[in-house]
Simulated scan of single mutants.
Amino acid sequence: MIFHTFTEQKLRQFTESVFLKMGCPVTDAQLAADVLLKSDLRGIDSHGVARLSGYVRLWEKERINAKPDVKVVHETATTATVDGDAGLGLVVAPFAMKVAIEKARIYGSGWVAVKNSNHFGIAGYHALMAVEQDMIGISMTNASPLVAPTYANERLLGTNPMCYAFPAGKYPPLVVDMATAAAANGKLEIAQRANQPIPEGWVQDKDGNSSTSAHQLKDGGSLLPLGSDKDHGSHKGYGLSATVDILSAVLSGANYGPWVPPFVAFLEPSANPVGEGIGHFFGAMRIDGFRPADDFKQHLDNWIERFKSAKTVDPNKKVIIPGEPEYAFEQERKIQGIPLIDVVVNDLNELAVKLGIERL
């Protein structure tokens, strides 16, 4: 693999240009670019600028509305449902989290379900918005059906990520951001670009047999839930994924299970949808609704320090705090730049030529 390194600003300008060419308003283009760049900065390369071509293809298929009328369509004092009007999830999701944060600011907590949206980037971006307000942030979304439930050989669930983010004191926020599948589909895409095998336990073939081929999904296979298989706790990942699907879509009126529209443009959405678009779910809770925020942060710092000092099997390794590696990536890449493999760079430059913007 050959890596090319770009400054954050260079990639940000390029990404904004792509969204502007799609017809997004300037503020939306800037916000969408910020969400994608946050992913690349935090080392989650599968959900960053490498996804740009996917968004453009969906827009070309008229499955993404570049100028949506995002609005609250149902609410109580502490809850709301947002209609994303088929807009970029990168824009719809921050709108919804802001609604949750504002409700939490007034009432202590806010909960928002979203329908009629699209892929929203990394869940961590949206949960961290609440952390900035001394709140606990919760973010989740359903996704294209690629995952087979425990014992099944049929794609019925997405990778359905969930994120919980907590503000600390002298340490970076503690961020639990994970797919509820054994691996996110983006990790398979990275392996495909690098022409490398994947670990056993991530996918099964169309007959339900374990496979290490990163191309298995194209051949009718499926991802496995967190826990890999029935002998290693996959029912837990299945249960978590089901929870995300229900909160994100059954609650909001979005499509759920096998009816969730695919992210890839060459696959058509269900001809008989059960809802509207993709669904998300967000929560924000004021810490001072439970105890003084400074007290909480002090004790979370203490929690972090105790876990970091845990005895380990290998003396050369330490317990990793959730969100710690991503924070380290962000600090490094803001200075050293963001590396992209040549396959991604070539794809982005082809996109630039097609849209008539400056190449990377």
Rank of each mutant, 00 (worst) to 15 (best):
P261G: 13
N153W: 00
F6N: 09
A143V: 04
P273L: 11
H119C: 04
V353E: 15
F307M: 13
L247V: 13
V250K: 02
A93N: 06
G169Q: 03
I335T: 15
R42K: 14
Q9A: 13
V72D: 08
H47A: 06
K170M: 02
K311E: 15
Y107G: 04
G289L: 05
N195V: 03
F296E: 12
V313W: 10
A254Q: 12
H74S: 15
S210R: 09
T312C: 12
R291W: 12
Q336K: 15
V344F: 03
I136T: 11
G121R: 04
S309N: 14
E276L: 15
N349Q: 08
I335F: 11
L247H: 09
H215I: 01
E268Q: 15
E324A: 14
F263G: 05
Q9Y: 07
G323L: 01
P197V: 02
W202K: 12
S109K: 07
A130Q: 00
V70P: 02
H119A: 08
P68V: 05
G208C: 08
V344C: 04
K71D: 10
V18M: 00
K334H: 13
H299M: 11
E326R: 10
A104V: 05
E326G: 06
I246H: 06
Y107C: 00
A249C: 13
V343T: 14
F282A: 07
L226I: 12
G221F: 07
D245A: 05
R291S: 11
Y125A: 00
E305G: 04
K317E: 15
L223D: 00
P273R: 10
R155G: 01
D219W: 01
V26C: 07
A96G: 09
K71H: 14
E62Q: 15
E8I: 08
M178R: 06
V112G: 00
I357Q: 04
W59D: 00
A29W: 04
V49R: 03
P197E: 10
K308E: 14
T243H: 11
P269F: 09
A242Y: 08
G221I: 00
I122D: 01
P258R: 15
G279C: 12
T27V: 12
L351R: 11
Q204G: 11
H47W: 06
N185D: 14
Y151A: 06
M140D: 02
A182I: 01
G239F: 04
L340I: 09
G275A: 09
G208L: 04
L251R: 13
A194Y: 09
N65L: 02
T7A: 09
V175D: 07
L223K: 02
E60A: 08
R42Q: 15
F266M: 13
T212D: 00
D347W: 06
S144L: 01
G48I: 01
E154G: 02
N209T: 01
I341Q: 14
Y238T: 04
R57M: 03
M140V: 05
W259G: 00
E268D: 14
H215A: 01
D134V: 10
Q13F: 14
G233A: 14
T180P: 05
Y327E: 15
H215M: 09
D177K: 12
D342H: 11
S46N: 10
A113I: 00
R63S: 08
M162A: 11
A143C: 11
V73A: 12
H126A: 00
K317F: 14
Q13A: 12
Y125H: 09
N185T: 09
D83H: 07
M140F: 07
K115V: 02
E268V: 03
F266C: 10
V26F: 03
H4M: 12
G108Y: 06
K115Y: 02
